[in-house]
């Protein structure tokens, strides 16, 4: 027997499949924005598990995304010729396997970052994750097998609406189901009061690491989707700016508010596109938005209930 939320998940995947079926008849510009929206939803919702529900502060989400993107692209682009015959030449089998591999490598990195998070909190953790993201970027720039600073080209275009929104739906479902389960109450307890949670016998260390591993896994998957959508990835594309972009989506939507974060991800993606005519003023508006929002509505645009106190 499926629960109600599982029906929603299946319905969302079915809709994505249906929409994808007719994708040739859509306007390519619209399609482009739609896929970007889907990727951003996955990124923002997965970061929300770390930053919102668990109350850690990661500024390195683009780093996880980069690892996923490069790993998945390596599987399909560099080893694609050898692997494709093994799955009978079917790209729809190879692609999810490549994505999965990317997600696994990213979650391994999440484990690595999660370990220092045991000892650090707040702004220190933010800086460590930021530094981690930068280290990833510098390392990728120095690996010639994946193109170094020039980036990786000729990645096959496997991404379509189905994969993008199917993944977004799975991410939303997983985070939602995880946080609302009995086990998942622990994430919120860590956010509310770490010391009290520990005193109640909650293994806060384990929850924090779990949040990083799960969040990084989905960010890695999103990276894989991104790589097979743009067909070109470069280390510079996964820098600090990208991490900030995802963080802003989470803040705008409201930390620990999945629906709000989804709305914010879509809104910001569309807004970024529509502000293009303002050119140079776009990023100024963007940064002013962050400052004003933090002063007037720190709980996010779409959170109306009283804000939980965070230490």
């Amino acid at each position: 027997m499926l629960s109600r939320s599982q029906y929603y998940l299946l319905a969302a995947i079915a809709v994505a499949f249906g929409a994808s079926w007719f994708s040739r008849s859509y306007n390519p510009y619209f399609l482009d924005i739609a896929v970007t929206c889907g990727i951003n939803i996955t990124l923002a919702v997965s970061l929300n598990l770390i930053n919102g529900y668990t109350g850690q502060f990661s500024l390195g989400h683009a780093g996880f995304m980069a690892i996923g993107a490069y790993s998945a692209a390596t599987v399909t682009t560099i080893f694609g010729d050898k692997l494709l015959p093994l799955v009978g030449g079917q790209t729809w089998i190879l692609f999810p396997l490549a994505l999965y591999a990317g997600g696994l490598v990213a979650s391994l990195a999440g484990l690595l970052v999660g370990v220092p998070s045991l000892r650090l909190r707040g702004d220190y953790l933010a800086i460590v994750t930021l530094g981690f993201g930068e280290i990833i970027r510098v390392l990728l720039q120095n690996i010639n097998a994946v193109g170094g600073a020039r980036g990786m080209i000729n990645i096959p275009e496997y991404t379509n609406l189905f994969w993008t929104f199917g993944l977004a739906a799975i991410t939303v479902y997983t985070v939602w189901a995880l946080v609302n389960s009995t086990y998942g109450r622990g994430f919120i307890a860590v956010n509310d009061d770490e010391v009290a949670a520990e005193a109640m016998g909650i293994n806060t260390t384990r929850y924090k690491i779990t949040a990083f591993v799960v969040g990084a896994f989905f960010a890695g998957l999103a990276g894989g989707i991104y790589a097979h959508f743009k067909q070109y990835i470069a280390p510079q594309g996964f820098g600090f700016d990208k991490s900030i972009e995802i963080v802003v989506m989470v803040i705008l939507g409201g930390m620990g508010n999945t629906v709000g974060v989804i709305i914010a991800a879509v809104l910001l993606t569309v807004l970024t596109e529509s502000l293009r005519k303002f050119g140079d003023y776009r990023m100024i508006l963007y940064s002013l938005l962050i400052i004003v929002l933090m002063i007037t509505r720190p709980q996010g645009l779409f959170t109306w209930t009283a804000k939980r106190k965070t230490a």
Binding site: F57, G122, I244, V247, S287, L289, I291, T310
Partner: peptide
């Protein structure tokens, strides 16, 4: 702290742009 930290990031982006 996080609220102030995020604001600081916003100020940083504002100055850069």
């Amino acid at each position: 702290t996080l609220t102030v930290l995020i604001t600081a990031i916003g100020v940083s982006l504002l100055l850069q742009n």
